[in-house]
């Protein structure tokens, strides 16, 4: 089998843009994801994607690029969620849930109106991603925003890790815990909402949680786990883009399989396979020692 199709894929401009923007944002997502897991904020991350749906659908409604809608709603929601707080995680989740369902209600309305006003594809782009139809003018913006956020994470990772694991100790050491969590939520919002372009608002969580959960099994230092997750995430996106490009020829009816499917499936595999392999390996070792 020749690998000519890869060269052919790489020569196409939409694929190039998809690869550049997608892998950068996936790296940021992995980096942020390690801290999301450390802080137990998977639900918050997921909520941001749903709020983003509302923003993205609203942006199409008024004729803006979806990304601006995702981003503005996500950042506002992230700060709001952090300020609303809650005594326990369960209670915080429930309060978040009510805000979330309200946002989803409006998202439903906006998507419905989008469909009525003949942006039939807008709703699918919002929900399932639009990496191949990315506006080339946005690529530099996405790249620089991802770079700034990644730099910010590298700058604050040590006090952030301390504040995540032991807030009391962090406060004693003079770490501004509250400001730290707000800053983190904003970076998380940027990562999640830009993922929504790659994988759609329904699936943005995959890139945050999947690679980070896989990395957390092998690396305990949060920074190293973050970087490992980022590299893994970028690899997943590159593989997904190429597979989606090639999948046009897989079935007789010639439909491209969506990028978001490959992202979700590969992220899940990255999490499950090492665990299974390790378990199997451990069992084998135990058998050998017993024998």
């Amino acid at each position: 089998m020749t690998l000519g199709w890869i060269q052919e894929a790489l020569a196409s401009a939409p694929v190039q843009h998809a690869l550049v923007a997608g892998s950068e944002i996936a790296f940021l997502s992995g980096l942020v994801g390690a801290f999301v897991i450390l802080r137990g904020q998977s639900f918050a991350g997921h909520v941001l994607t749903d709020v983003g749906t509302t923003g993205g659908a609203g942006a199409y409604l008024v004729g803006l690029n979806g990304w601006f809608g995702f981003l503005s709603f996500g950042v506002i929601a992230s700060v709001g969620m952090e300020l609303a707080g809650g005594r326990t995680r369960g209670e915080r989740d429930l309060a978040t849930g009510v805000v979330l369902s309200l946002a989803l209600g409006f998202g439903a309305l906006f998507l419905y109106l989008d469909a009525q006003l003949a942006h039939a594809n807008a709703s699918m782009a919002v929900l399932f991603g639009s990496l191949f139809t990315l506006d080339p003018a946005l690529v530099p913006w996405i790249s620089s925003l991802a770079a700034v956020c990644a730099a910010a994470m590298l700058l604050i990772w040590r006090p952030l890790a301390l504040a995540s694991v032991n807030p009391e100790l962090a406060r004693v050491r003079g770490v501004p815990v509250r400001a730290m969590s707000i800053a983190f939520m904003v970076v998380l919002a940027v990562a999640v909402e830009t993922d929504a372009l790659v994988a759609g608002s329904l699936l943005a969580t995959a890139l945050i949680v999947g690679p980070a959960a896989a990395a957390a099994r092998f690396v305990s230092n949060p920074l190293r786990a973050g970087v490992a997750a980022g590299v893994l995430g970028a690899a997943i996106v590159v593989a997904s883009v190429l597979l989606s490009y090639d999948s046009y020829n897989w079935l007789p009816q010639h439909t491209s399989w969506p990028v978001s499917f490959f992202v979700a499936a590969l992220a899940f595999l990255a999490y499950v396979v090492p665990a299974a392999a390790r378990r199997f390996g451990v069992r084998r070792m135990a058998e050998v020692t017993e024998a």
Partner: peptide, 27 residues
Amino acid sequence: DVATALVLALGLGTGALFLSLGNLYAE
């Protein structure tokens, strides 16, 4: 929460695939 997020992502990913394979889009 990690387990829930991962299963959710996988489920939705296959959903996106079913929709596009069946040409079932938008409506």
